[in-house]
């Protein structure tokens, strides 16, 4: 995953799948849990390759990590709300994959919550279409999944 580059500063170099190199501070890189172990052993000449992350998504991730206000609770929420609002559905989906792969502090939860709100109370067909997922169940498998546990919920009061 790591290769050598010409030494420059104390920053960490990250190379995206589309070949762009980003220099970030260790404080920022350390919040991407997947690459954390690589940072410990790397020096300023190391380039860490991110095979599942495109430059656009890494830009958004860095924007989030650098821009998130440290204090003022209402400011964090306003920042996160705006961050999500600025994303198109396509961008949102791509970012979800990138963030899930890198395990970015805070952002995994934000993306997961955002997607949860988008698909909650929607039909199965809507969710398939939204994510571009093909139904690969055989009818028998689908029926089995529908039946599974269904008996247990008959006649149970919600509270």
């Amino acid at each position: 995953m790591a290769e050598k580059a010409s030494p420059s500063s104390n920053s960490i170099s990250l190379k995206t799948v589309d070949g762009k190199i980003f220099k970030v501070s260790p404080a920022i890189a350390n919040q991407m849990l997947t690459i954390q172990p690589l940072i410990k052993d790397s020096d300023s000449s190391t380039i860490i390759s991110l095979p599942d992350v495109a430059a656009f998504h890494l830009t958004k991730i860095i924007e989030y990590l650098e821009g998130k206000p440290a204090a003022a609770p209402s400011a964090v929420d306003a920042f996160e709300a705006q961050f999500v609002k600025d994303l198109s559905p396509e961008e949102l989906k791509g970012l979800l994959i990138a963030v899930g792969y890198l395990k970015v502090n805070g952002l995994v939860d934000l993306m997961a919550n955002t997607v949860a709100k988008l698909i909650e109370n929607k039909s199965v067909e809507y969710v398939r279409k939204f994510f571009g997922v093909v139904n690969d169940f055989t009818p028998a498998e689908e029926a089995k999944c529908r039946q599974e546990h269904a008996w247990a919920f008959d006649g149970v009061d919600e509270d």
Partner: peptide, 30 residues
């Protein structure tokens, strides 16, 4: 991106607060 191969831990985070009908719907996607 192939969303049928979303990491399991991410999917569990997405559905962590779903009620039973929503959970079943998500389970039937693929």
């Amino acid at each position: 991106a192939d969303f049928s191969s979303l990491p399991y831990d991410v999917l569990i985070k997405i559905a962590a607060s779903f009620d039973h009908p929503n959970l079943l719907s998500a389970s039937l996607v693929c």
